Lab assay of single mutants.
Amino acid sequence: TFELKGKVGKVVKIAEDHYLVESEGDKWIAYSDEKLSLGDRVMVVDVDGLKLKVKRIP
């Protein structure tokens, strides 16, 4: 299986209740415990079905 946990991506869209993150050339629906901005670099900390939980990284 394709393992996304630990992968790095970038926030490419902000929606009302989720983010769109591009990682490894694909776009994924993501959510975070912190507020993210367009262009933020993020790391995948968990995968919930087809949704990614991400956190901001420097």
Score class of each variant (00 low, 15 high):
Arg41Cys: 14
Ile29Ser: 10
Asp40Met: 13
Val54Thr: 02
Val11Ala: 02
Gly6Arg: 00
Arg41Leu: 11
Asp46Gln: 03
Leu52Arg: 01
Ala30Cys: 14
Lys13Thr: 07
Ile29Asp: 06
Trp28Glu: 01
Glu3Phe: 03
Leu36Ala: 02
Lys10Asn: 07
Lys35Trp: 08
Ser37Cys: 09
Ile14Ser: 09
Lys35Val: 07
Leu38Phe: 12
Ile29Met: 12
His18Thr: 12
Gly25Phe: 04
Lys35Glu: 06
Asp46Cys: 05
Arg56Gln: 05
Glu34Lys: 06
Glu22Asn: 05
Leu4His: 05
Trp28Tyr: 14
Lys10Leu: 11
Ile57Met: 12
Val42Cys: 10
Arg56Pro: 07
Leu20Tyr: 13
Leu20Trp: 08
Val45Met: 13
Glu22Asp: 05
Val47Arg: 03
Ile57Asp: 11
Leu38Gln: 08
Val42Gln: 00
Lys7Asn: 04
Leu50Asp: 04
Lys27Gly: 05
Ala30Asn: 00
Val12Pro: 00
Asp48Ser: 05
Ile57Ser: 07
Ala30Gly: 05
Val8Met: 08
Tyr31Asp: 12
Lys27Trp: 06
Leu52Val: 05
Ser23Asn: 04
Glu3Pro: 15
Glu24Tyr: 03
Leu4Val: 14
Val47Leu: 13
Asp48Gly: 03
Leu36Trp: 01
Lys53Gly: 05
Asp26Glu: 09
Lys10Thr: 06
Ile14Ala: 10
Ser23Gly: 06
Gly49Glu: 06
Val12Met: 11
Leu20Lys: 06
Gly49Ile: 08
Asp48Tyr: 14
Asp46Ile: 03
Arg41Glu: 14
Ile29Glu: 09
Lys13Glu: 08
Asp46Leu: 03
Asp40Trp: 13
Val45Trp: 10
Val44Lys: 01
Gly9Val: 15
Glu3Gln: 02
Glu3Gly: 01
Val54Ser: 01
Val54Asp: 00
Glu3Ser: 01
Lys27Tyr: 08
Val8Gln: 06
Thr1Arg: 15
Ser37Ala: 12
Thr1Tyr: 15
Asp40Tyr: 12
Tyr31Met: 14
Gly25Met: 05
Leu36Cys: 08
Phe2Tyr: 03
Pro58Leu: 12
Asp33Ala: 13
Val42Arg: 00
Leu52Ser: 02
His18Phe: 09
Glu22Ala: 06
Thr1Pro: 15
Arg56Val: 04
Ile14Pro: 02
Val11Lys: 00
Val8Ser: 04
Leu20Asp: 06
Glu34His: 08
Tyr31Ala: 07
Met43Val: 14
Val8Trp: 04
Arg56Ile: 06
Gly9Tyr: 02
Asp48Arg: 05
Asp46Met: 03
Ser23Thr: 13
Glu34Cys: 11
Lys53Trp: 14
Gly9Pro: 01
Lys53Cys: 08
Asp17Thr: 12
Leu36Asn: 01
Lys5Glu: 15
Lys5Met: 15
Lys10Tyr: 10
Val44Glu: 02
Val8Thr: 07
Arg41Pro: 12
Leu50Gly: 08
Ser32Asp: 03
Ser23Asp: 04
Leu4Thr: 14
Lys13Ile: 08
Gly25Ala: 05
Lys7Phe: 03
Leu20Gln: 07
Asp48Cys: 14
Ala30Thr: 14
His18Ile: 13
Tyr31Ser: 06
Lys7Gly: 03
Glu34Pro: 03
Lys53Pro: 00
Ile14Gly: 04
Asp26Phe: 14
Val44Thr: 02
Lys7Pro: 01
Tyr19His: 03
Ala30Gln: 00
Lys55Cys: 15
Lys53Thr: 12
Val12Arg: 07
Asp26Pro: 03
Lys13Asn: 08
Ser32Cys: 08
Val44Asn: 02
Ser23Lys: 01
His18Met: 12
Ile14Val: 10
Ser32Met: 05
Glu34Asp: 10
Leu36Arg: 00
Pro58Cys: 14
Lys35His: 08
Leu36Ile: 06
Ile57Gly: 04
Tyr19Ser: 04
Lys10His: 08
Gly39Thr: 07
Asp17Glu: 09
Lys53Arg: 14
Tyr19Pro: 00
Val8Asn: 04
Lys27Met: 09
Thr1Asp: 15
Ile14Lys: 07
Lys27Phe: 09
Ile29Thr: 08
Tyr19Cys: 10
Val21Gly: 01
Glu22Gln: 05
